[in-house]
Amino acid sequence: MPWTAADVPDQTGRVALVTGANTGLGLETAAVLAGRGATVVLACRDPEKAKAAAERIGGRTELLALDLASLASVREAAEEVRQRFERLDLLINNAGVMIPPHQRTADGFELQLGTNHLGHFALTGLLLDRLRDVPGSRVVVVASMAHRQARNGINFDDLQWERRYSRMGAYAQSKLANLMFMYELQRRLAAAEAETVALAAHPGFSTTDLTRYVPAPLRPFNTLLAAPFGQPADRGALPTLRAATDPLAMGAHYYGPDGPFEMRGWPVLKASSAAAHDESAQQRLWTISEELTGVRYA
């Protein structure tokens, strides 16, 4: 039997923070969790869109201003969470950008690395003490099957793409960084005997506004592929929901669709690339991420 949203257990009494919860996968993830009784914190960059999402979702939802492309915003958001909540049960690092023109974050990082990886790295580190002693707590990182395109791993010699920018190359590396962060975080949590575990998921080819930066000449091709290979956002959110709530899920598990090329289907355990499992690269990325963000994990 396929795993569906109906398999999400009761979440009453749990607190879940979902980044990028005002649209797409984040919205669908937050809606299911709220529907199962969780208090869901919608951590979003646009307050008006977040408010509209909360009205659509209903249930116990709270709003949190968060711009992952600004470390100042990340720190302010984390401090607000710490003031409002004594514990977190779920931290779902969902928000992201995909293949934009070359841009920098407020802190000077390449936008995709800064938003998809460094912003979430900082947020997780600043909130980890609200998770680590909570039984059943989880950190879920939303990655992408595009991580496989970073076949040579992380280019540490040009991490910020200052020499020659590739939209897809930068996106693939940021998603590889997501997985490497998850595996290293899980190893450290296990060594510390923390209650929290770290997992990851990818949505396959989901039709969301994440593709808004696809160059105009490629948009008809993207639309053409969506019909036979894509799936709607509510289906694309299922791997994330399974990683977050399946009682049988364990640390370092990685979920994705079971269909052809992992583009669509029901959520099952998947394998990530060899580059994602390079422990020396994971540790190097961790050290660099601490240096760049100024967030050091206890």
Rank of each mutant, 00 (worst) to 15 (best):
M1C: 01
M1P: 10
P2C: 01
D7C: 08
D10N: 15
Q11C: 10
R14T: 14
V15A: 01
L17I: 14
V18I: 14
N22K: 00
T23A: 15
G24E: 04
E28I: 00
A31C: 01
V32C: 04
G35L: 12
V40C: 02
V40K: 03
L42C: 05
R45E: 10
R45Y: 11
D46N: 15
E48M: 09
K49G: 12
A52F: 03
A52S: 14
A53C: 00
E55P: 02
A65L: 13
L68F: 11
A72W: 02
S73L: 03
R75N: 05
E76F: 03
A78M: 05
A78Y: 07
E80F: 00
R82W: 07
R84A: 08
R87S: 12
L88S: 08
L88E: 07
L90W: 14
L90I: 10
N93L: 13
A95W: 12
A95G: 10
G96Y: 03
G96P: 06
V97P: 10
M98C: 11
M98E: 03
I99A: 07
P101D: 14
G108W: 12
F109W: 15
Q112S: 07
T115P: 12
H117A: 04
G119T: 05
G119W: 09
L123D: 09
L123V: 04
L127Q: 11
D129A: 03
R130K: 15
L131Q: 08
V134C: 02
V134T: 11
G136P: 00
V139Y: 00
V139T: 04
V141E: 01
S144A: 04
M145V: 06
H147K: 00
R148S: 01
R148H: 13
N152Y: 12
F156T: 06
E162A: 14
E162V: 13
Y165E: 11
Y165Q: 10
S166R: 13
M168R: 04
A170N: 07
A170R: 06
A172Y: 07
Q173V: 01
L176E: 11
A177K: 09
N178M: 01
L179K: 02
Y183L: 09
L185H: 10
A191C: 06
T196C: 13
L199Y: 10
P203G: 04
G204N: 04
Y213H: 15
Y213V: 00
V214K: 02
R219E: 14
A226Y: 12
A227V: 15
P228W: 11
Q231R: 04
A233N: 08
R235S: 05
R235M: 13
L238M: 13
L238A: 07
L241Y: 05
R242A: 02
A243Q: 09
D246P: 10
A249M: 09
M250Q: 15
A252R: 15
Y254P: 03
Y255L: 06
G259T: 00
P260F: 10
W266D: 14
V268D: 01
S272P: 03
A275V: 00
H277E: 10
E279A: 10
S280V: 09
R284A: 10
L285N: 10
T287K: 11
E290W: 04
V295H: 02
R296M: 00
Y297N: 00
